[in-house]
Write a protein that binds this DNA or RNA. Structure first.
Lengths: 354, 354
DNA sequence: GTAGGTGTGACAATCGATTGTGGGAAGTAG
DNA sequence: CTACTTCCCACAATCGATTGTCACACCTAC
């Protein structure tokens, strides 16, 4: 094939061009520019090559390098839904750590659909990404199993998977939920409901189990108090409340599995004439940015999302540098209870709009 | 170099393996698998190759292909700050359109810093991305100029740049602002303030100019009514209000350049004892998700962010397919005025906390 | 039976950087 | 002056897929 002359664009300078300019062979130029191999080249030559590279404005072709070395310096971050306010902070933290280390982040949004997750993970693999940060882990997750089987460096963030050997970077949910329950108990609440997240997510399961434990520790029973939400959304929270109300389960306080669930629950309650916190107290979870702005501002648990993203990236980078992570490693970041306006001492029982 | 035997990982199947399995040459297999070149191969052979590929679980090595074809099927999306609730929707729309077309999105967050923007754009170029979607455009933007000079397919979304020839996908800000002003005028407001965004962004400039025009159209003067914010943030809005209050400029309504600015302004006003909308009416801009949840819910202008992202991606994809876009193309999406609780008829003048 | 046409697939160059190997020059010692 | 070491650098193979060129086979027509 004839190399077509490039007319309308700047001629891209290649390594051979630099080598010619410096009067050396391309291989030598490569070594001169590579800090790891630099010591097999004389200092003089290194200087000449560097000068030539600078003069010509050489930027190495990452694709070609990747082909040869089978390393792309690209990491894929898989999120379920970037418009869920939880994730931008994680993305940002990860991006910062990755960029700092010379890596690039490719983002894929699975729209909460396992099929899309699978196909996207496959596509990223074909693209030769060096590793994965997965924020979509489900309790049983074939996509993660496939990554494990293929031995591809991966970390899980925010959610973990039962069967996966990969490191997990999350928050101390047990303690977060425990603080919510204790706070409500101290306010005199006994009939406390938990709006549980989906059981196919670790965040759903872990928080539910933590709730059960915390209730027990406070001598409270949980038979009727755990209500499942089908999703971590406002709709999920609203539906759960409607179910509970239809059943007639008594309650004076709610521990929601997530901020959005809490908001949905509050709206549904308001729709039935219950006021928060006068009639029922509610706690959220994650302290997404706008929780403090709502009226009343939500009592919730602050999770260091940005840090979680950074740590996830750093952990992955360590694996990429060859550190074999201990199977089952978990990093649980500390959380902070944030008392605001949606929790109050339990009052006399009221009927709505009475 | 000896090819080291791969032990601990699945042997990656290459095109030659497929070819051997099908009993043909690699070149032939390549054509058989490529829809564009398929007709230079007999139907029989195509079938044999396809069967072999399926049997072996062949996935083409995108890196190698990229090296040869100098196309990566990767698009870079540059955002100023992913945690600004404006951007996740744009990202999502773009990602959907891109994925649908077999492209991958790499995301880079510039943290609002021009230097980072420059270096990131350079890094993405070295990585061989096929094109750029830029959401960080400033009115004068060297990074965009560089892209233009290099002839790299690019589109601007949300913000545009004065000097850039690239297509721009935005919203009909002129009309959006005009609706805000008209609404306030109909409520009886005359002393209307505009909290203008930074003049180095097109969104700042365009909305300010639209405000000026709309005021003129309503027979109102604008000498004292335009107040600059240094950034599209709550802090920017709050600072602007504090300045205005210190100056003693009279006003009964505010057209903010952005939702966040509007929120910051409302909070600052509340801090001075002014109530919204009783003492002052406020309009936001963009209708970011949580605006409807605040108390009072914000009157604002809904911008189809998701669509903007999609259209930006589709426009870029067209360029990548060889369609030479008309220089100066602009796509302005229609906006929708959303009346909620932060605007009310002008009342008798009040002093705060009186 | 031969000439001419058409279609199919093999061959090899190529994208650009990395890296194992070997050779040659320079330097030191005997 | 020879022999041996040391240090640099050039050479060429390689990563895996794409694609221009060419040869061969088969078919039709005269």
């Amino acid at each position: 094939m004839v190399r077509t002359p490039i007319i309308d664009t700047v001629h891209k300078v290649r390594l051979v061009d630099v080598a010619r300019e410096a009067g050396v062979h391309a291989g030598t130029a490569s070594r001169a520019l590579n800090p790891a191999a630099r010591d097999s080249v004389s200092r003089q030559t290194v200087r000449r090559v560097e000068r030539a590279a600078r003069k010509l404005g050489y930027t190495p072709n990452t694709v070609a390098r990747g082909l040869r070395t089978s390393r792309s310096f690209v990491v894929a971050l898989v999120v379920p839904d970037i418009t869920n306010p939880l994730f931008p902070y994680i993305v940002r933290g990860a991006e910062q750590a990755l960029t700092e280390a010379g890596y690039t982040l490719v983002l894929t949004d699975t729209n909460n659909e396992p099929d899309i997750e699978r196909s996207q993970v496959a596509a990223m693999r074909a693209r030769g990404v060096d590793g994965f940060i997965v924020a979509t882990a489900r309790w049983h997750d074939p996509a993660l199993d496939a990554l494990a089987e293929a031995g591809i460096p991966t970390v899980m963030v925010n959610r973990r998977s039962e069967s996966s050997p990969f490191p997990y970077i999350g928050a101390d949910d047990r303690r977060g939920i425990e603080m919510c329950v204790r706070h409500l108990v101290e306010l005199g609440h006994r009939a406390i409901l938990h709006l549980a997240g989906p059981a196919d997510t670790s965040t759903g399961r872990d928080r539910t189990s933590a709730f059960r434990q915390a209730m027990r520790d406070n001598g409270l029973r949980t038979e009727e108090s755990i209500v499942a939400c089908t999703s971590f959304t406002e709709q999920g929270g609203a539906d759960a409340i409607n179910t509970v109300l239809a059943l007639g389960t008594p309650f004076t306080a709610i521990v929601a599995s997530t901020d959005l669930v809490a908001i949905g629950a509050a709206e549904a309650l308001a729709g039935h004439g219950f006021r928060c916190p006068r009639d029922v107290s509610i706690t959220g979870y994650n302290d997404v940015d706008f929780m403090r702005r709502l009226t009343p501002a939500f009592t919730t648990v602050r999770v260091p999302l940005n840090n979680m993203g950074m740590l996830a990236a750093r952990t992955l980078l360590n694996s990429l540098r060859g550190a074999e992570p201990e199977v089952g490693t978990q990093i649980l970041l500390p959380v902070e209870f944030v008392r605001r306006g949606t929790t109050a001492p339990v009052g006399p029982p009221r009927k709505p709009r009475s």
